[in-house]
Amino acid sequence: MDSSAHQQAYDRGSTIFSPDGRLYQVEYAREAVERGAPSVGVVADDCTVLAARKRVRSPLLEPTSVEKVHAVDDHLAVASAGHAADARQLVDVARRASQQHRLRYDEPIDVELLAKRLANHVQEQTQTGGSRPYGAALLVGGLDVTGGTDRPRLFEVDPSGTPYGWNAAAIGEGTNDVRQFFEAAFDDESGRQWAIETALEGLAVTTDDDLSPETLEVRTIGSHGGGVQTLSTDRVADVLAEVGSE
């Protein structure tokens, strides 16, 4: 009783440190992310792939209304895990940030810069009085198109507001298992098809059930003028069949 009362004082407001230097509210937010359906990202030679598994809790629910991967600009998309409501707000922050960058500099924003802009915004909520941290993590995937050659990139933004650059990453349920799988599978000279297959295989690690195409969302952000493309359910089913037969 005593100890729980003691701890409560440090987990009420996110701006308060515990005596051992922890921010409980931020840790709870991370916990919320880990309970969320997973999203993964894989960087290939010429594109970044973002994929997500959706929880469709009733056959009456329209699967397309559960959105986990969002287009943010012609060269950018964001995948989320955790509280969907919080993630939606972050997606709009991302969209506005990328358009503000175009307005101000007349060029598309770099993936890393957008991830850092989002991270700044997320971090602010862990330090501002009266606010709570975002209960969602993001994978920001896209192409840097300003350096002359298109370069696919992938960044994670977690609820503490820290950006991390990855070659392949997962957020949400089963992240550690997916990471181990990606570490074994990673090959830094591989194409779009490999990246799509690897992303779906990564998602398969997070569940004992078979993946069903209707509950998956896959987008590629590619060069050669491809932009953000959504894989059709049929195409996802084809890839799943290929992956399954290997």
């Binding site: 012609d74 969209r95 175009r102």
Partner: peptide, 14 residues
């Protein structure tokens, strides 16, 4: 023109 482009792009995304 820059502003209109940005607004139309946001419209498309949203």
């Amino acid at each position: 023109v820059r502003r209109l482009r940005a607004d139309l792009r946001l419209y498309k995304l949203r």
